[in-house]
Write a protein that binds this DNA or RNA. Structure first.
Length: 645
DNA sequence: CTTGGAATAGGATGAGCAAC
DNA sequence: GTTGCTCATCCTATTCCAAG
């Protein structure tokens, strides 16, 4: 009799014995071998994958030899799934080695066209289906069944009714999963030891029997544990919530007793949450290594994930909704400022799944917009029409397959990437302060680009140079102008006079806020040049006029005109430039002075506007109208257009 | 057999609302 | 404006398991 040989991607397999057992089985095996998985089409290693197919063959042989129920296998693979997976269940209980079994499960999944699910073969599993991720999660209730069979059956029924009614309820599968896992723990750890008899007699209704004796006792025990700090208050309130839900869905009355207070905890939590935010220097280190890692990233998975971290660091968006950003969530809209901008719509996984448009300050909008667009461009190539992730923003290619950034492991992955860079600060989205960290990001990233060659150096080398950069490069961008604000106030004469002239004077120097009467050789101009000698040397530019436009309004040479155009300039200065500066000041770590300076400037503009209004009310009104319709005065565009990172 | 990514258990959390 | 409380997940350390 001739031998039957199966050709694998690497090597052959003699399957004469299997062929003698059942030609139908061999046919099915051939079909499975032809599948993508076993042809290594997804970038799998061919040698490994061939070895894995041999494992399937071994598994079949083991079953034929050892399983008394293997008879139907002569009909082929369909025997595995017949009678509600009877054979699969039997194999699961058998002595078969795990490696064999797991590979066989894969093969069966390929044969049936859908993966074999845990609850298909393992008994006493509560199964939860998460539609968004197309994934199942399980809770093993075998231990509960052993302790309290009746209650376990009741809970199992409750799961099917709750699952069925879920679309009408205000909570999600995630919540249901949490509730069942907590309920199980309560039943097993707190009720089974003490009240086993009652529960087995009455089922869950036992909770309210005898004037709610068991329910009260349960509440009391949890309250006591919280007070003794055996469990945290959060855990305790979590348990309370689950008991209330359980009473509700089983048609019982909730007893309002043994409450636990939140107050003491909250003051503590508030203090702790402050301590838990990154300091500026920690953030700088993170950003440095993040940028460096992006620079060096070779694979799309790490690159896309690092961009994810970059955006999260800037915005402080939550991980889960960020993973769920779809291309269609990014909208381009027209703003009244006549500039196009973007709005990100994220479905927050909170009550009612409301759509939130995320609020970003003026500065962050621009730079985050750029980042999102960049990711969109980077991932364009992976959006083949086949992938079910094709509409998501954060997708990448791995082993020839399209994957998406997943909230469950993205943090640890980012951390491992940063650690490779030698970053000593752990990445943790919860430590980013509420407002996001865009301002730090800008500062560091900008200098990284300027000094790219330093990328090869260590963080400590960078930080030394970074300090020098901060001193030399003043005034090149608006954000840094904030720093010179203070020296401005001490370095020159401040005038409280507001001089308004009636007609535009073409002898005077034009500035974005108005006019300058300086001749270019007074102390104000000298002071400016002293401060910015380095800058001018770099630019190779010979400047005669003072260019400290942000400070104009305090200068004794400042002049403004009571007409539409000049008022518009002032309004723009107040509503765009100052607001922009305000947004870039970090509100921790001794930046109060900067905030104060901005506030003073803003008030100064308001004073000037008042005086202008006294002279020409109409001009002020028209200018306000102008700003509403056209946005910022074009003179200021130099300041705003430089802010994008 | 070793390694590293994925699943899970268990604890943590911030927003929002109502009563004061 | 403050306090008390609930809702609806979110985060992470540990365990599990697949790939090579």
């Amino acid at each position: 009799m001739s031998e039957v040989i199966l050709e694998l991607p690497v090597g052959n397999a003699n399957i004469t014995d299997l062929f003698h057992f059942s030609p139908a089985l061999v046919d099915d095996l051939k079909k499975i071998l032809a599948s993508e998985r076993y042809q290594g089409e997804k970038g799998h290693n061919l040698r490994s994958i061939s070895a894995r197919f041999r494992v399937v063959l071994t598994a079949c042989r083991f079953i034929i030899a050892n399983d008394t129920n293997s008879g139907p296998l002569t009909q082929g693979f369909s025997a595995f799934v017949k009678n509600h997976y009877a054979l699969v269940k039997s194999i699961y209980k058998s002595e078969i080695r795990k490696e064999l079994r797991n590979e066989l499960w894969y093969a069966i999944g390929i044969y049936t066209g859908r993966p074999l699910l845990k609850h298909d073969y393992q008994s006493d599993l509560w199964a939860f289906y998460f539609k968004g991720q197309d994934a199942w999660r399980h809770i093993d209730s075998a231990d509960l069944k052993a302790a309290m069979p009746k209650v376990n059956a009741e809970m199992t029924n409750l799961l099917s009714s709750e699952t069925e009614l879920l679309p009408q309820k205000s909570y999600s599968m995630e919540t249901l999963h949490t509730r069942f896992s907590k309920a199980k723990r309560l039943l097993l750890e707190r009720l089974a030891p003490q009240f086993n008899d009652e529960l087995e007699e009455y089922g869950l209704q036992a909770l309210s029997v005898d004037n709610n004796r068991i329910q009260k006792s349960l509440f009391q025990a949890i309250q006591s544990d919280v007070q003794q700090k055996v469990i945290s208050l959060r855990t305790g309130t979590g348990y309370f919530e689950v008991i209330r839900w359980l009473m509700e869905v089983t048609g019982q009355v909730v007893v309002d007793a043994y409450r636990i207070s939140m107050q003491r905890y909250q003051t503590h939590a508030k203090r702790e949450s402050l301590e838990k935010t990154y300091s500026d220097s920690e953030l700088m280190e993170l950003v440095f290594h993040l940028e460096k890692a992006i620079e060096q990233a070779k694979e799309s998975k790490s690159l896309i994930t690092l961009h994810f971290a970059k955006i999260q660091l800037k915005t402080c968006w939550n991980t889960a909704p960020m993973c769920a950003i779809e291309l269609s969530d990014i909208k381009e809209i027209e703003l009244p400022t006549s500039k196009k901008t973007m709005v990100i719509m994220l479905q927050k996984a909170r009550k009612g799944y409301d759509i939130d448009t995320y609020q970003l300050d003026g500065r962050a909008v621009n730079s985050v917009m750029q980042d999102l667009l960049q990711v969109k461009v980077l991932t364009e190539q992976y959006r083949g029409s086949k992938s079910r992730f094709k509409s998501l923003l954060f997708v990448y290619e791995e082993y020839g397959e399209i994957g998406c950034v997943k909230g469950t492991n993205v943090t640890s992955y980012i951390n491992s990437l940063l650690e490779q860079q030698g970053c000593r600060v752990r990445y943790n989205s919860q430590r980013i302060r509420k407002s996001g960290a865009n301002y730090i990001y800008r500062e560091v990233a900008k200098d990284l680009r300027k000094y790219k060659k330093r990328m090869r150096h260590s963080y400590s080398t960078f930080i030394q140079h970074y300090k020098q950069v901060g001193e030399a490069g003043t005034q090149t961008t608006l954000g840094e102008a904030v720093q010179t604000m203070q020296s401005y106030f001490t370095g020159r004469e401040i005038s409280s006079d507001i001089i308004i002239i009636d007609k535009d004077d073409d002898v005077l120097q034009q500035t974005p806020t108005g006019l300058c009467a300086s001749k270019g050789n007074d102390i104000e101009a000298l002071q400016y040049h002293k401060e910015h000698r380095l800058l001018h040397k770099d630019n190779g530019r010979e400047a005669t006029w003072c260019s400290d436009y942000l400070a104009c309004i305090w200068c004794k040479y400042f002049r403004t005109v009571a007409d539409l155009d000049h008022v518009w300039q002032l309004l723009s200065y107040r509503d765009y430039v100052l607001a922009d500066m305000g947004a870039s000041v970090s509100n921790l770590e001794g930046n109060e002075q900067q905030t104060e300076a901005i506030e003073i400037l803003k008030n100064r503009v308001n004073d000037i506007l008042c005086q202008l209004a006294n002279r020409d009310q109409k001009a002020v009104e028209q200018a306000q109208e102008m700003q509403r319709n056209q946005g910022m005065h074009p003179f200021w565009s130099f300041a705003i257009s430089t802010v994008t990172v």
